[in-house]
């Protein structure tokens, strides 16, 4: 019988999260972010957090909610636009920010989960990202040494999950979630649909349940769209 990872909801899932911890949060922009866990972190009033996340949300959604309450001490991200409160805290020195190339961020999380302490990448060579980092040439091309990232808790969002913690993501909401699931000492998955073990096709699972310690069915997803871009509908007659 599979090991059950099910907890009752976001409150039970976030048990043990404390001030000063390092957290990973999946998502790209507002796509595929763990909405319910973020709401619970706001409610818990934990602060002095180091948050590893590709982006920092917008003013009133995503990680912006934690920034509003000054719960974050340091952000490790690749891109942090679209957030006025973030800018204010960064410029005033209240918030520490470590910007790293997106591919290096993804690979550092993957490495952290895969037991690889560091790796060489060409990204950032010759730029300020390379400052203080070891440089080594492979096949005549310079690379910089980047270290793995891990977290006390990783929060990920999936489309479907089963009681064993196996996860399936939808479309581009996958993004950083699979690597962060691997890199959390405790990984909390929130899902839109929670199904019994044996329901998901084992051929089609994206994140194996071994990487997930707690899973719960999220409620009330807002799934906000950052840039709504559409083509107008035209009927055949006026096309």
């Amino acid at each position: 019988m599979a090991i059950s990872k099910v907890v009752t909801g976001s409150a039970a899932a976030c048990s043990g999260v404390q001030s000063g911890m390092t957290l990973m949060l999946g998502g790209f922009g507002l796509c595929g972010i763990p909405e319910c866990s973020i709401a619970e972190l706001v409610r818990l009033e934990v602060n002095d957090l180091t948050c590893i996340s590709n982006n920092a949300g917008v003013d009133d959604f995503g990680l912006g909610l934690l920034l509003q309450k000054r719960q974050i001490r340091k952000m490790i991200s690749s891109y942090v636009g679209e957030n006025d409160e973030f800018e204010r805290q960064m410029l005033s020195g209240e918030l520490e920010v470590d910007l790293i190339p997106q591919g290096s961020l993804a690979e550092r999380c993957r490495a952290g989960g895969a037991g690889i302490p560091a790796f060489y990448t060409p990204a950032g060579f010759g730029t300020e990202v390379a400052e203080g980092k070891e440089v080594r040439k492979f096949n005549g091309k310079p690379h910089i040494l980047e270290s793995a990232l891990t977290a006390d808790f990783a929060f990920v969002k999936a489309w479907k999950g089963d009681t064993a913690g196996n996860l399936v993501y939808k479309a581009t909401a996958r993004n950083f979630n699979p690597m962060m699931a691997m890199a959390g000492k405790i990984t909390i998955a929130e899902v839109e649909e929670l199904v019994p073990e044996g329901t998901l096709n084992p051929n089609e699972i994206h994140t194996p349940g071994i990487f997930v310690q707690r899973i719960f069915k999220g409620e009330g997803y807002e799934k906000r769209i950052e840039q709504r871009t559409v083509r107008p509908r035209q009927t055949e007659s006026n096309a």
């Binding site: 790209f28 507002l30 997106q102 993957r110 479309a171 996958r174 950083f176 559409v230």
Partner: peptide, 28 residues
């Protein structure tokens, strides 16, 4: 208009569509 999906965006965070034969994958 009306078909936009919050789970399907590009790197500019704009809503997009997927062509036949498209594939989704993680950031790594």
């Amino acid at each position: 208009e009306g078909d936009e999906d919050a789970d399907l965006i590009n790197a500019g965070k704009q809503t997009i569509t997927a062509m036949p034969g498209a594939v989704y994958f993680d950031s790594a």
